[in-house]
């Protein structure tokens, strides 16, 4: 597990360093296309990058001054900095916040959404399926196997054709003007 972590951190450090080279954007988009990419790395970027790197370096320096060379440092119990220590010990309460927002909040929403996905959306699809199945089942009953029924369907079809050809179709054609 250590090796990949080291590799990743090396990549992160190496990748970050590219910010200081003007060629960063050409690494992303070299050649003709680069001109189409708007961000240009001016003073603001340099300031921001410098500040964050300075913060990191400052942190390392502070830790060195406190614990470097095997020194032992313990914050006095009465120190007003105890609250800062607690904050740091709890990692800015990020984990608690994550757990609360993530596990309680978003996860609950997720479960509701999952239910919606599985039962409502899929249910609608299945409902569609069932409607066709029902129609199929109903229609199947007209296939009675009795010849006189079939003859009756022919006559019914004939009458429907009368209505269609003599009344409905001329009306519609007059309205929509044919093909």
């Amino acid at each position: 597990m250590q090796v990949p972590l080291v590799l990743l951190s090396a990549l992160a450090v190496g990748g970050g360093l590219f910010v200081f080279f003007p060629g960063f954007q050409s690494l992303l988009l070299s050649g003709a296309g680069a001109s189409g990419i708007p961000p240009s790395y001016g003073t603001t970027d340099l300031l921001l990058s410098g500040a964050s790197v300075a913060l990191g370096v400052g942190g390392i320096a502070l830790a060195w001054s406190l614990w470097g060379n095997g020194r032992v440092f313990a914050l006095p119990l009465a120190s007003p900095l105890q609250s800062v220590r607690r904050l740091l010990l709890n990692r800015y309460y990020f984990k608690v916040a994550y757990d609360w927002i993530g596990l309680k909040g978003v996860y609950t929403i997720s479960r509701v959404a999952d239910f919606f996905d599985r039962y409502v959306i899929d249910g609608a699809v299945h409902g569609f399926e069932r409607a066709f199945a029902l129609a199929s089942d109903r229609l199947r009953r007209i296939q009675s196997g009795v010849v006189s029924d079939y003859a009756a369907y022919v006559v019914a079809g004939l009458i429907a054709l009368f209505v269609l050809l003599l009344i409905i179709a001329p009306f519609l054609v007059a309205r929509i003007g044919g093909g």
Binding site: L139, R140, L165
Partner: peptide, 29 residues
Amino acid sequence: VLNLGPVVQLTLSVLAVVTMSVGNILALL
């Protein structure tokens, strides 16, 4: 004088849609 062609076209169109739909729905099950 009747617009015979379009009337028959419309009728055959209805017949076509009914035929393919009913045939397919019945084949389902």
